[in-house]
């Protein structure tokens, strides 16, 4: 079941960071502190989904997606009601400065920070998934729930935990999002297409593939943005998505 509310949680993470920065906190610290809160929130959302849909076997087909679209809309409208529709951004010492690489080439410091933290987060997640019992069970639960039961693991508990972790990362990722640029409540729509693109390009379940696919998409979007125009940027994700599905449906790094 594609979790289409994930980008909405990302934007929620950005706004939660914004709120804490308003109290005088550093955005990165805010993102880190919000992680356990978002983890608990994710656990609660999954439990609600499990009790109302999955346990009754009514999560199949379009209904499960509808549930998550509903959650995404609630988050979106909630953000509009609280923060309004205007764009929001944060201040920090590493925002608005840049580092000279050579000659006229300068890299904004906020981009370096975001890249470094995102890389660290991805590596931590990859290690967690491959080195711990629960991590391996998370990878296995997507492949065969019945077989995982035979290993003595409860698939529902594993999925709830995985959902908690995924939502927890939204807190820090949201902080990075608002560090990189201004955020508005409808930003999540852009990320639904991007998420599909990255997942398909990477191939299901490949962490290193996800990292590379994210880079490819980011660079491709920037190139189109600079050469063709801003209006075409959102088309890049779906363009790549269609091309990959047509040429190599298993993804670049699909197993």
């Amino acid at each position: 079941m594609p979790h289409v509310a994930h980008p909405a949680f990302l934007v929620l993470g950005a706004y939660a960071t914004y709120a804490l920065v308003g109290l005088g906190m550093d955005p990165l610290l805010a993102g880190l502190l919000l992680m356990p809160v978002f983890f608990a929130f994710g656990i609660a959302v999954y439990q609600f989904y499990y009790l109302t849909f999955e346990r009754r076997g009514t999560d199949l087909g379009v209904r499960g997606i509808a549930f998550f679209f509903g959650i995404a809309f609630i988050v979106q409208v909630g953000l509009i009601l609280v923060f309004g529709v205007d764009q929001r951004m944060v201040e920090a010492s590493y925002i608005g400065t840049s580092i000279e690489v050579f000659g006229d080439v300068r890299i904004p410091q906020r981009m370096i920070v975001a890249f470094g933290v995102a890389l660290a987060l991805t590596i931590t997640l990859a290690l967690y998934l491959s080195r711990t019992f629960t991590g391996r069970a998370i990878k296995a639960v997507a492949q065969d729930e019945g077989a995982l039961r035979l290993m003595g693991a409860d698939p529902v508990r594993i999925k709830r935990w995985a959902f908690g972790i995924a939502t927890g990362t939204c807190a820090l990722a949201g902080a990075l999002l608002i560090i990189v640029g201004p955020v508005d409540p409808n930003l999540d729509r852009l990320y639904i297409g991007r998420t599909f693109c990255v997942v398909v390009l990477a191939g299901m379940g490949s962490m290193s593939g996800t990292l590379v696919a994210g880079l490819i998409l980011g660079v491709a979007e920037s190139l189109v943005l600079a050469s063709v125009g801003t209006a075409w940027a959102p088309a890049v994700a779906f363009g790549i998505l269609l091309a990959v599905l047509g040429v190599r449906p298993a993804g670049l790094f699909g197993r």
């Binding site: 491959s130 019992f133 391996r136 990878k139 296995a140 492949q143 065969d144 077989a147 995982l148 290993m151």
Partner: peptide, 16 residues
């Protein structure tokens, strides 16, 4: 088996 996990990952899951 878990087809898209390695042999060793399958074995380690057996020890859950």
């Amino acid at each position: 088996l878990f087809p898209r996990l390695t042999v060793e990952e399958n074995l380690l899951l057996g020890a859950f």
